[in-house]
Write a protein that binds this DNA or RNA. Structure first.
Lengths: 187, 187
DNA sequence: AACTTCATGTAACGAGTTACATGATTAT
DNA sequence: ATAATCATGTAACTCGTTACATGAAGTT
């Protein structure tokens, strides 16, 4: 999904500044799935304005640079709707964690264990983020509910899988070599 | 994960040509997670050869263009090991399906239902692919097993979630408006 | 006859990131 | 003092894709 469409989508939900769109990608309900930098958002919004797909009103603030609040136009709405019904690209779960995991046997001992721990922590944070995002900022539309549920379900399954594996790594480690520091902290 | 590292990783498993690396990304156990085109793989392999991280022997075939079979060198192996222990980028599940789902209420009636069906079909194919990939081509290392299990677990959870939703969409459709063609085919 | 598979490679292009430039305010 | 938050924007760059060029064998 290109940045243009992303911006249009966000503006469908509510009027926003470029800055706010960026924040949404970092912290909103979508943060698990989207990504975009200022360097792509700002030019995208300018172009969309030129093309009449969004409109822009400037709001001067007392002690801050002017805010540019963008709204989607009817033309933009039509365009966005169309882009939603175009054939989809195939989904990919791009994961450095999984790539590294594939070569687990090349890793120094204990490293995989650590990676899994970190991944679990991160996934739990993500899950938190998502439910928060849905709760306050994002519209509680059917779509948002669906996506949120999707995130919850997949995250839960993955965490379970990872925890199962972490346990099996622990027992394997204590069985084969009880030389290393016996893992017993439960932070 | 950049293409260089991807190539080094594949060559860790077995000597390959650029062509074979591409095939792996399309059909192998990794196909769910990786992606790369010839236009990036071939230059990457050339550069890796220049830098001495891989070596290349040419094999002339009777009625085919010469094959360039690449092997990873000791230097390459060290480099790859190092890259595995570097801090990971955060995972993202980039999904056009989820993006569109977020705006389900803007979609024409029945479209979401169709999307979910397609997604389920696609996920089932992916799951098939993965188990095949692990079965024949890829090494059955601990890492491969782990990744395969990960794919199976997450795919399964997602399919279950989607099927639950499809059913709820069906009942909702028949309840609110029994005007449309009553869905009854079970293909 | 046309298409797919095998096999390599390059050049043009594109989308997006990173880093920079600017600048006030507030929190540590 | 130093850093973070708010707020916008541009230029350089990087990585990778797409499309093209080549060419023979086998398949439909």
């Amino acid at each position: 999904m290109d940045i243009r469409t992303l911006c249009l989508g966000v503006l469908t939900l509510k009027d926003s500044t470029g800055y706010e769109i960026k924040k949404m990608c970092e912290e909103g309900a979508l943060c698990h799935f989207l990504d975009a930098s200022f360097g792509s958002i700002y030019p995208a919004l300018s172009r969309l304005t030129e093309e009449g797909l969004v409109s822009c009103r400037e709001e001067s603030q007392p002690k801050r640079p002017d805010k540019k609040i963008y709204s989607i136009t009817d033309k933009g709405r039509r365009e966005f709707r169309q882009s939603l019904t175009r054939p989809l690209l195939e989904d990919k779960y791009r994961s450095d964690f999984l790539f590294v995991s594939l070569f687990a046997d090349l890793l120094p001992p204990g490293h995989m264990h650590e990676l899994i721990d970190n991944q679990i922590v991160w996934l739990k944070q993500q899950a938190e983020h998502m439910s928060e995002g849905i709760r306050d900022c994002d519209s509680s539309s059917a779509g948002a509910q669906f996506v949120s549920g999707f995130g919850q379900a997949s995250t839960k399954a993955i965490i379970e899988y990872l925890e199962k594996h972490r346990r099996s790594l622990e027992t394997a480690a204590t069985q084969t070599e009880n030389v290393k520091t016996p893992v017993k902290e439960d932070a």
